[in-house]
Nucleic acid binder design. Structure first.
Lengths: 335, 335
DNA sequence: CTGTTAGCGCCTTCAC
DNA sequence: GTGAAGGCGCTAACAG
């Protein structure tokens, strides 16, 4: 059956290949009776149009490339789900590639997808400003949208990481916290991490507080030990703002291992809003991003541009709303 | 640049298209000087061979389809990572499709991938015995390997869910537990769930214990409420065996909401071995499956068959080792 | 409304 | 070691 093709169907139906093609692509440009006949024969033979031949001929593959840091962080898994559903609804398949937060992998990924004839790409890159990969896309006039990244010169779907982070600090301050520390993944590997850190510094500054040294740990490792060491320093912070939910979970683990109670001895706030956070004890207090929607809107932006035969414009960028999700890992400072 | 093709490269290099093609596909069938020239020109022009044209000509796409229930369960995200890495190492791209545990979606997914010219598929299906999708693949002679599923008539990469589950019960019994309950996702949607339940019943039987009614909840929902109701029943179990780690996490949540301490008042054991489980408090006690390796071996089996031009055989199935991971969510029964 | 035909870009025999 | 040419399966003019 894999060798089934339009010619065989045409012969069996007693029509020309053009008619078979039209019956599928422009059903109303074919007589109802003929169409029914073709459809019946095609169904009998299990015919499905060869995607490669169609792509070669039309120069459209109906495939979108997706470049993500990792799927092991539920944030991106949730986003990818939004991407996949929206793409499928629009008749597009997706080819995801992960970079593990490695710059070199970003370029490899883009090249691979470029060679794979994708119609467009959704990417989460380390840093849009310095990205060679994006440069490559621009040079090739490949339509793309960035997810999570935020940059004035590229089409992006993101949230206000900076503002949200400053708000978190303000909230902690209202709860009576003064020694508010921050822990983040490798900042060089993520503009979001940089934005969140900047927001944190702004929040501290606005409250007239001095920020203690930030703890920076690799994205991929568990780093519970580093967190324990960090928390063992005196004066110990009363609140910890974590640049992402996985770090928050590990921070809670580290605190527990050292006999600290969360939130009584240490308030912990995350960032991302992964669904799992709500099922933990204590439930994670976090900045909830609409991960699914970030994926969905990214695809919608891209598909609209594809339909119009243009590349998405930077000024079509979307800033989606975030929200603080009250959990149990964050409470007032000890008095 | 997207319109770059072999002809342009050939002209620019002053050779024929055949030579360019050979320079890339059979480097040693071309004079070193010629090859260097072609490579230089191609690099300058940013030429990459058109995947669709190559696929159409060679009848090989170097793409693998992957059918999974969901990526929101880290089990499958971890597995997909193994799949992606191994596929990439072998020069294959992947197209993942999720089914959300819906039977109808399985067929849709397979049809979509079939139309997409994949060279083979890795699948996690609900039930290999009754799967229309697998029948479709067999009829079309499409090479495939099942992951997690276990079935004598299909090539599978799995673990001994049944044995592992019986062992969990035996372990709980050794810890002094008598009222050991089980909670599972919808069994009709997963042969693994069925196997794990069967193993649980065997373990109970072997210990001369009566199994209380099992709690069956949908895979996709959180179901913390259902769990709370279940745990409120008297006599309350002293140990809970959960068919997967997400359920275990939610069970711990449900217990906490009812003021039950884990593991003192309720021992909880999961199944899957998701990495996150180790960072929770209490750390999850669970049956660790080699999720990454399940993905890796599935691809290796598939690629070997592709290389040999055959479909993977059922008797090439792999049963990978599992291990009990000692966490903190499981302890001796109260005396 | 339907048929004929030219190529999309590539690989691969077959000559040379 | 290299070149010429056919055809993979499909769609889109163009005729009829």
């Amino acid at each position: 059956m894999p060798s089934m093709n339009i010619q065989i169907v045409a012969r069996r139906a007693g029509v020309s290949v053009a008619t078979v093609s039209r019956a599928f692509n422009f059903p109303d440009k074919v007589a109802p009776a003929t169409r029914a006949l073709v459809e019946r024969v095609a169904a009998e033979l299990g015919y499905v149009a060869n995607a490669s031949a169609r792509t070669l001929r039309t120069q459209r593959s109906r495939v979108l490339g997706v470049v993500l840091p990792t799927l092991l962080n539920p944030t991106f898994a949730e986003c990818l789900q939004g991407i996949a559903q929206t793409a499928a609804a629009g008749g597009y398949a997706i080819v995801p590639v992960t970079t593990d937060y490695q710059l070199a992998e970003e370029e490899r990924a883009v090249n691979q997808l470029l060679a794979g004839n994708v119609d467009g790409m959704i990417l989460v890159v380390s840093n849009p400003t310095t990205s060679q990969a994006l440069e490559r896309l621009r040079a090739n006039a490949v339509p793309y949208v960035l997810a999570y990244n935020k940059h004035g010169l590229h089409p992006c779907v993101s949230v206000d990481s900076e503002g949200a982070s400053a708000d978190v600090v303000a909230r902690l301050v209202r709860l009576g916290h003064r020694r508010i520390a921050m822990v983040t993944g490798t900042m060089a590997a993520s503009d979001r991490a940089q934005q969140r850190y900047r927001g944190y510094l702004q929040g501290m500054d606005a409250a007239g507080l001095t920020a203690p040294p930030v703890l920076e740990v690799p994205f991929v490792e568990t780093a519970v030990d580093a967190l324990r060491h960090y928390l063992a320093e005196t004066p110990r912070p009363t609140a910890l703002f974590c640049s992402n939910d996985l770090l928050a979970i590990r921070s809670i683990r580290a605190a527990s291992l050292d006999g600290l109670r969360v939130p009584q001895d240490l308030a912990v706030v995350g960032f991302d809003g992964i669904a799992l956070g709500q099922d933990l004890t204590p439930a994670l207090s976090t900045v909830m991003q609409p991960n699914h929607d970030i994926g969905r809107h990214s695809v919608e932006l891209l598909l609209k541009a594809l339909a119009d035969g243009v590349v998405p414009r930077a000024d079509a960028s979307l800033l989606l709303p975030h929200a603080f999700r009250e959990g149990e890992s964050c409470a007032a400072a000890p008095t």
